[in-house]
Design a protein around this nucleic acid. Sequence first.
DNA 1: CCGTTTTGAAACAATTTGTAACGGACGCCC
DNA 2: GGGCGTCCGTTACAAATTGTTTCAAAACGG
Lengths: 254, 254
Amino acid sequence: MDQAPAAVIADDHGHILVVDDDPQIRLLVARFLQRHGYQVTGAPDGRAMMEALAHSAIDLIVLDLMLPGRSGVELCRDVRATSQVPIVMLTARTEESDRITGLEGGADDYVTKPFSPRELLARIRAVLRRARAGRGAAVTQTSAIVTFDGWRMDLRRRELLSPSGTLIDLSTGEFDLLIAFVEHANRVLSREALMQFAKARMSDDPFDRTIDVQISRLRRKLEADARGGQLIKTVRGAGYLFASQVGHQQGQSA
Amino acid sequence: MDQAPAAVIADDHGHILVVDDDPQIRLLVARFLQRHGYQVTGAPDGRAMMEALAHSAIDLIVLDLMLPGRSGVELCRDVRATSQVPIVMLTARTEESDRITGLEGGADDYVTKPFSPRELLARIRAVLRRARAGRGAAVTQTSAIVTFDGWRMDLRRRELLSPSGTLIDLSTGEFDLLIAFVEHANRVLSREALMQFAKARMSDDPFDRTIDVQISRLRRKLEADARGGQLIKTVRGAGYLFASQVGHQQGQSA
DNA sequence: CCGTTTTGAAACAATTTGTAACGGACGCCC
DNA sequence: GGGCGTCCGTTACAAATTGTTTCAAAACGG
């Protein structure tokens, strides 16, 4: 478990991936969960985590907020961009903003270190129960093609086609912002939420206008279609709203 | 809100039922959630909660652990026995056993009192997001449509179409005011009630004229249709009345 | 390393919202 | 019926918020 991601087989309540750079935590959690019937794989960092995800069917990730390299929040977002696998975040911090950041970044729950294995188990069970209850009709993988009002987004190629079929050139930030919008269409999203979902630079400044500038740029590019500039609506004092019927399709890439 | 369960209407991120015997908590939470687009109903105890559940489509319950009569945990189990409506538990206790009891009783999450409205909102959003993801994509894309005298309002997209099909450009405040009117059609609404329903800036000044100005502006925009300017009637000394037959649809957006 | 693109901040512009003032409508009282 | 006080509709202007453009620094790619 200190080297390659290691799978320890148990009877099958599910397969949990524990991502924590502290080997003692990994061992403690693995031992406890195995005793309760879970298969457990450990990973010390994001690279090992992605490797385990690529090779195993993981039912839930226990992910530490503080990791070497890419942080837990960033990893959470990475995973969430392509998968609905449940994520329970471990955090030593008790500040509210950290907890909210984790939740808005896509985590399903969090547990504060130091934690008892019993509480972690209860949360894992609750999260898995919900995930399994909802898995009947839902696909667990995010679709590769997103459509809205005649537009077409290829998430894997990061391409946007206008209703007339024109390829629209979006920068990284603009594309991420548009992803954030289509994934939360027809909901008012605060500036803070958009910063989180679009993986933009975070700012504590209540007067920060970065998102506004980015939205202005994105609106300008969506004007390639006659009504494209009106897809993003302003809700004064609250945030922005992507007003469109969004459809998801599996792309042709395998 | 201290008597019967009272409904305060907002645009449609969902309908939240807040169950807490403390009226200040109920008011605080209701105000905050309304500002973020939720419809909120309050209930002081289990009986009122069950009544609200019987009469309204509730999307999520915020449920206090300590209640007069049946406890929050018991109520949680009662609800969970017949419904999958998401439940966020409020608890003043920090002992682990209480948190675990709540989660195992069927709650989807908990928040420790004293709590910040921001954290509660983040948890509500996360829980609703999961509940909706598990219900299939169709529900999250459904628009809430309101019709009156040939006009058509899409609450999700915040769009208004005149009887002739023209898209009428309303500001945030104007749209919220119109929502307040259609949700309370054919009833006299005081200025104070309108300020509250429309999420406008609250004023204690008995001579405040802000609502009057906003209504003047909204009337002007409704004049796009020949009889639109007469939809809002003045009841001198009492307030205003939206005179129309209002229809509600949970339609698929075209 | 260098040229190009992207991004954030600052400055300016545009829109929305709130306030003050004026005048007409309304209703009460004589 | 008329006078008078109060209430409401509207407009103009001020304040607040959001939209856009420009500039400089950072990031990216060859």
